[in-house]
Computed example of a mutant assay.
Amino acid sequence: MGFYDLRCAVTGISLRGTDAVAVGLMAAEDAYRPVTLGITGCYNRLGSIDGIEEDLNTELVFAYFSRSARSGDFIMDAEYADAYGDPPRDVEALLGYFERNVSDSSEECPAATLSGRRVFSALVARPVWNALADAFAPAGGTPETWCGEVFGDAPEPEETYRGRHAELVHHIRALTAVNRFLGARGTGWSLPDDGETGGQHFGSEMREFLDAARARFQNVPSVLGALDAYAGGVGELLEDN
């Protein structure tokens, strides 16, 4: 498994050289719906994140999938057991299984399934995530109603976070903001196209993606500010040809 670079699920900028927020996704009807709150770390150039900021959210997510593995509801392909463990060794390894479902699996040969369905990950550049969380935070409602809005009636997040919503307000508010932004733009949550996995991004591609994002979000000041912050953080890489 060699290095490869993904693009931000909201803006399309390269994740090379930046922190990112991972969200677990599962298919729901004809779309994808989050099944975890956001997990923050450094993009690892392998389609996922490392250096994860561990907190109550990561503790609950890891505990849920560990229980599901022991009960036989979360099943992992033995091919990846040496790399990630069976059950997963930690939350970083768990996200590794989600990533393998994005880049190296099919319905017939899944890397990992929960109750028979694959679990994927979507990555959002951290500057973009933070900007949307601030600019589009829900003004009314409760953590419980926001979870209902984002997760619907999916049993997985209900079991993961039951009774802990008040302690996760910051995470829930942020995910709700990003989810609403994607919904308002008619894009929703998505996975990379087949051609977007496997290659590395260099300066010319990174600048191209950044220019396209600035054009696409020219009327969204919060996103433009995030793109400027991103550009400042990866400045040297933008010149790497």
Score class of each variant (00 low, 15 high):
58 T>D: 01
99 E>P: 11
135 A>E: 00
93 A>R: 08
126 R>Y: 11
93 A>L: 06
69 A>W: 02
98 F>T: 01
71 S>G: 09
65 F>K: 00
44 N>T: 07
74 F>K: 00
66 S>E: 15
44 N>P: 08
122 A>W: 00
82 D>P: 12
69 A>L: 07
112 A>S: 05
133 A>K: 04
117 R>F: 13
116 G>C: 07
121 S>R: 11
86 D>P: 10
114 L>M: 06
82 D>Y: 15
47 G>S: 02
136 F>P: 08
86 D>L: 13
137 A>R: 15
135 A>F: 05
123 L>N: 01
84 Y>N: 03
43 Y>F: 15
53 E>G: 12
65 F>N: 00
42 C>I: 09
51 G>D: 02
133 A>H: 07
113 T>D: 02
105 S>I: 07
65 F>Q: 01
123 L>A: 01
107 E>N: 13
117 R>E: 06
92 E>D: 04
123 L>Q: 01
72 G>L: 11
55 D>L: 11
121 S>V: 15
46 L>D: 00
78 A>Y: 09
55 D>I: 12
116 G>Y: 06
73 D>H: 14
137 A>Y: 13
41 G>Q: 01
61 V>G: 08
81 A>Y: 08
97 Y>H: 13
134 D>C: 10
115 S>W: 12
124 V>S: 02
96 G>H: 08
68 S>E: 04
68 S>H: 03
113 T>I: 14
72 G>A: 11
54 E>D: 06
111 A>C: 05
68 S>F: 12
119 V>G: 00
44 N>R: 02
116 G>L: 12
97 Y>D: 00
52 I>R: 03
46 L>A: 14
65 F>R: 03
99 E>R: 13
59 E>H: 11
61 V>M: 05
127 P>Q: 12
127 P>W: 10
81 A>G: 10
121 S>A: 14
40 T>A: 15
66 S>Q: 13
134 D>K: 11
